[in-house]
């Protein structure tokens, strides 16, 4: 006999179709009106597994053998995060920035990456290469393109080691877009970068109020022109157009989305990603007109839906985050580290000043000198400390670890935006 999985979400579309999602298998399936009632019944009462439809539900993980202990499955899945053949490094090629955004939480104490840090990274990856199946690098900052020579130099080594040691290498960049010319972008693609996140917070007025250059001037026109030039580049990549909204920019969003459609609606490699401005620890935190929780839950997906209706797809990050383990933050993963420009090692990008976040240093010879008691703080504060998380449908995706920093700072559960509005998200994925 088979029972419904505890990790299912079942939702109906406006057309009476049924969407079913399972966070342990990552499956998402759509059933038409004719099948919907039958599937609903099977997923409520369980099934013997005799019919073709029942077997399909078993294959996708929506029905599981009645003997299976699914909580044990989730516990084992969590243990597999300790595999050492997959590594994620967040690298800060510089911590300087040419912007001074109103909501920024960084204070730019360290500049460009030192020779010691670069050599340490090269040696570390060369030493680890023979154990790896996969290395993912996230170029972060500061503004990483202020140090694109560092990105080029390190990428050359990473790609060479990946080729010699036969592991999969991928990279992405988070940039303000001001220096993202067509030439620089093409170089990033050569460096193995597959996704670039560029923040653009509305049309010219809204964006320039929030994202100024360090000299106080606006940044919109240059970024927009850069982005438009990238449409001429051939290749398979995602440009994630990230928009941070607040209470005072809400009203301008529909016009902004129409402008995005006019400029990027003909190129599906440009995808939207709407997020709320939050008090992330910057010096202007108390003045920020942040939205309340209900507004956030509503507006993220309202804007995303409007963009889809205008022909602008949403970022693959959203459906991707529903996969098993995909909503676990890098800070909570045992084999993931932030390497700062002075070779300091951190866990979380939001709390560089916190002592528990300062893990140690990367030596020039490639040795990681790390305080593993601090690593344990970041990697064991999730579902194992929270009975609600242990019983949640989303547990395999986030493991209670979507943001260990938030849980530590507030004592609240750090549920992801996607999980909070999962039925809405599924309906958008099905569109």
């Amino acid at each position: 006999m088979y029972k419904r999985s505890r990790f299912n979400v079942v939702s109906e579309t406006d057309l009476g179709e049924l969407i079913v999602y399972n966070s342990y298998s990552g499956a998402i399936a759509l059933f038409d009106k004719e099948e919907a009632e039958k599937v609903h019944g099977l997923l409520t009462k369980g099934a013997s597994g005799e019919t073709h439809l029942e077997q399909q539900l078993v294959q996708q993980g929506f029905l599981v053998s009645s003997e299976i202990d699914e909580k044990r499955r989730a516990t084992f899945l969590h243990q597999t995060m300790h595999r050492t053949d997959s590594m994620h490094l967040v690298i800060l090629p510089t911590e300087s920035c040419n912007f001074r955004c109103t909501y920024c939480y960084e204070d730019f104490p360290r500049g460009k990456m030192t020779e010691k840090a670069k050599q340490g990274l090269k040696n570390y990856v060369q030493q680890q290469g023979k154990y790896l199946k996969q290395l993912t690098v996230s170029w972060f900052g500061g503004e990483p393109l202020l140090a694109d020579d560092v990105i080029n130099e390190l990428s050359e080594t990473f790609l060479q080691v990946a080729n010699e040691q036969d592991f999969v290498y991928s990279a992405e960049v988070a940039t303000n877009g001001y220096l993202l010319t067509k030439d620089r972008f093409e170089q990033l693609l050569k460096n193995g970068v597959q996704q670039v996140m560029v923040t653009i917070d509305g049309n010219e007025v809204e964006h320039n109020q929030r994202r100024k250059l360090a000299n106080g001037e606006g940044s919109f026109a240059t970024i927009f022109e850069n982005l438009r030039s990238l449409k001429e580049v051939e290749g398979d990549f995602e440009i994630t157009l990230r928009t941070n909204f607040d209470e005072e920019s809400l009203a301008a969003m529909p016009d902004f989305i129409s402008s995005l459609k006019a400029n990027f609606g003909d190129d599906p490699r440009f995808k939207t990603y709407f997020r709320p401005v939050a008090r992330w620890g910057g010096k202007n935190d108390e003045c920020l007109p942040v939205c309340d929780r209900n507004t956030i839950d509503e507006k993220i997906w309202e804007f995303t839906e409007k963009a889809i209706e205008e022909g602008l797809p949403m970022s693959a990050l959203i459906a991707g985050s529903l996969q098993p383990t995909a909503s676990v933050c890098y800070a909570a993963k045992p084999n993931s580290f932030i390497i700062a420009s002075d070779a300091q090692i951190f866990k979380c990008t939001l709390a560089f000043d916190a002592e528990e976040n300062q893990l140690g240093t990367l030596e020039e010879d490639g040795t990681l000198n790390i305080d593993y008691d601090k690593v344990a703080l970041w990697t064991t504060s999730g579902e194992e400390t929270d009975e609600n998380c242990q019983s949640c449908f989303f547990r395999p995706a986030c493991q209670g670890n979507h943001c260990p920093f938030y849980r530590k700072a507030t004592g609240d559960r750090p549920c992801s935006h996607e999980k909070r509005q999962i039925k809405k998200v599924l309906s958008l994925i099905a569109k």
Partner: peptide
């Protein structure tokens, strides 16, 4: 049934 995302063992 239309599979939007294939289910697999993680």
């Amino acid at each position: 049934m239309k599979i939007i995302q294939q289910g697999v063992t993680p």
